[in-house]
Design a protein around this nucleic acid. Sequence first.
DNA 1: TTTTAACACGAAAACGTTTTCGTAGGTATT
DNA 2: AATACCTACGAAAACGTTTTCGTGTTAAAA
Lengths: 335, 335
Amino acid sequence: MKKASLKSIAAELGVSVSTVSKALRDSPEISQETREKIQAFARYLDYSPNKMALGLRNQKTMVIGIIVPEIVHHFFSTVISGLEEKANEYNYNVMIGLSNDQLKKEKELIEAFTNGSVDGLIISLSKESMQKKNFAHIEKLINQGFPLVFFDRAPEELPVNKVLVNDEEGGYKATSYLLDKGVQYPAILSTPLHISVGKEREKGFLRAVKEQAVDEYKIIHINEQFDIVEQIADLFNQKRIPDGIFAVNELYASIALKTAQKKGINIPRDLKIIGFTNGIISKTTTPTLTTIDQHGKQMGQTAMNILLNCITNPEENSSASIYIIPTQIIPREST
Amino acid sequence: MKKASLKSIAAELGVSVSTVSKALRDSPEISQETREKIQAFARYLDYSPNKMALGLRNQKTMVIGIIVPEIVHHFFSTVISGLEEKANEYNYNVMIGLSNDQLKKEKELIEAFTNGSVDGLIISLSKESMQKKNFAHIEKLINQGFPLVFFDRAPEELPVNKVLVNDEEGGYKATSYLLDKGVQYPAILSTPLHISVGKEREKGFLRAVKEQAVDEYKIIHINEQFDIVEQIADLFNQKRIPDGIFAVNELYASIALKTAQKKGINIPRDLKIIGFTNGIISKTTTPTLTTIDQHGKQMGQTAMNILLNCITNPEENSSASIYIIPTQIIPREST
DNA sequence: TTTTAACACGAAAACGTTTTCGTAGGTATT
DNA sequence: AATACCTACGAAAACGTTTTCGTGTTAAAA
C-alpha cells in the first residue's frame, strides 16, 4: 500500500494535480464542494506531502545538521537535547553526525550534510581540528555563506557565530570559591593547552590566584594519551599536597576524589574539590561534588535560535556574533 | 556563490544536462575529451549532486530516523552511537527525534519522519506508550510495511523486529551473584510493572531467589512521580535491613549506596549492591558499583544492521525477528 | 557509391510539489 | 446584444537528478 500522492488522488477523483494541491491548501480558487470532497478523500488516505518534493521545490529541507565529537557525554547530549527541542518548536528536525573527535570524519560529515541535506549546521569541533588548527573545511562553509553556528569548541580566529561557555569566568568562580573557603595551596587539573576550554578555565584559575595573592599553586596538564589515574595520583605523591583542587571536568574531579580517599584524605575537611560540568557524576559521588554548571540545554537553545534566525533573515545576519553563556556554581558536599 | 548544479555546469560548458550527468558518472556514451573537461570543471566548482533531487528521483533518502525517549542518558546515547556508526558505514545518515517519554511527541515525530524524510525507523518507545499500551501509530507503520526496528522498549504484542536486552537473564545473573556472595535477605529496587525492562529484570530476580530457595526477600517498586530518595530510604527504616540490593538501574543503585552509607552501613561488608547499566555512575561512586552491562553499542549496531537489511531486501525480510543481546556482569567494589 | 554500424550527444520523462497563467462557461453590466 | 467580469478549473514550469530513447555525423563495410 504505497503512500498517496497528489497525482494518485487526482487520478482517483478525476481532477487535475493542481486542483488537488489547491484544494488541500484551502485555496478559494476551488469550489467549496470540490474542496471538501478532495480533503475528505485525502484524509481518508492519510495523505501528507512528500518532504523531499517539498524540499526540492522550496529549496529548503527543514532539517538542521548537528556535528559533535561524541554523544555518550553529558554535556554534549544535554546541548543536543536543547537543540532538538528548539528546532522542533520551529518545525525543523535534526540530523546528527558524530566526528569521534576526528578531523577526517568531521570533514566527511560536513560534505554529506551540505549537499542539500540540511538548511544549516551546528558544530562543536573535534579535538583533532582544534589541535591542528585545520579549519579549511570551515572556511569553505563561511565563504559559501552557509548558515553556521558553533558551540563550545569553535575556531578561535574565524569570524563566525559562536555560542560559548564563559570558561574563564567558570574557572575564576571555581577557584575563588575554593580560596574563599580557606584553601591555601590550590591545584588545577587541566587539559593540554590546545583544548580551548581547558585553557580558558586555567586562565580563570590564574586570575583568581593572582587576585587573592596566592603565591603557591600547582598546575597539572593531563595528557589523555597516557594513564589519567596515574597522572592524577602523582598529585598526592608530592611533598606538599594541595588542600584544594579545581578539575576542569567531572571525570578528573571524580578520579581525584577517589584517589584522595584511598590515601586517607578527608574530603572536604583536608581537601576541597570542585569540578566542571553539572552532570551525573557530580551528583552520585560520595561526597557529592561541587561543580560549575554550563547550562548545556540553554546553550543548545541559544545556538539553534541564532541559526534559525540566520536562515530566516539571511541579510541582517551576515556578521558573526558571539554569545557567551554564564556559568553557575553548584555547591555540594566536596567543599 | 550558489551551489553548482548539472544545469549550471551544462550552461557554462555549452552542453546538455544529460551530457554532464553522464560525464560525471563516467558513462562510455560520452567521449573521453568531453568527460575530462566536464569532470575537471565540476571538481573546480566543488560540485556534488543535490541530496533531495537524488532522493526524489530514487525514492530513497539515505537517512534513518531514530526516535528515543531521551538522549541525556548513558544507555540511549550509547545505542545511538552504535546506530550512527553502522549507518555511516553504509552511507546513511541519522535523524534524531526525542519523544521525552511522551506519546504525543512520539506520534508527531513518526508522522514527520515517515513523510519521505527517512528510509527506515529505529524506535525505543516512550514510557507513556508502554504504559497506555497505545500502539495504534505503530500498527499503522507495520501495515504500511514501513522498515522498522525497535530496541529495548518494544511493543510486546506486535509482530515487529526487535533488538532486546536479555533483561530477565540480567536480573537473574545479578541476583545469583549476590546470593553466591552470601546474601541472605536480598531486595530489588524495581520500576512499576508496566515498564517492561523493570518487569523482566524482576522476573530474573524471582527466578534466582526461587532457585536458591531464598524464602525472604523484598520487592520495592519505585514510583518516579514521587520522591525517589525517600522511597529508597524507606528500605533502611524497616525492622530487617537487606544485606544485598539489586537495583534495576544505575541511579537507584547509587542512591541506595549513598543512603546506606549515611546510615553507617558498610559496603560491601554489610550490604552488597549491584546495579544495571554499565554507565558513568557505576564507575565513579565510592565504592564503585558492580553492575550489568547491556552492550548498548552492540545493540545499536545490531538494530541498524537489521533495519538496513530490511530496506535492501524487502521481500526476504517480511517476517518479524527478535534479537536478544546477552548481558554481562561487571564486578566492582560494591560486592 | 550505397548501406550499415558505431559514436557522441540531446530531448524528454519521471520523482512530488507549488504557483503562475490561461481559459471555458456563466453572470452581470451597459 | 455586446462587453466585461467572475468562477472554477487545467496546463505547464520549476526545483535537480538519472535514464531511456532518438538522431545527426562519421567511419567502415558491401
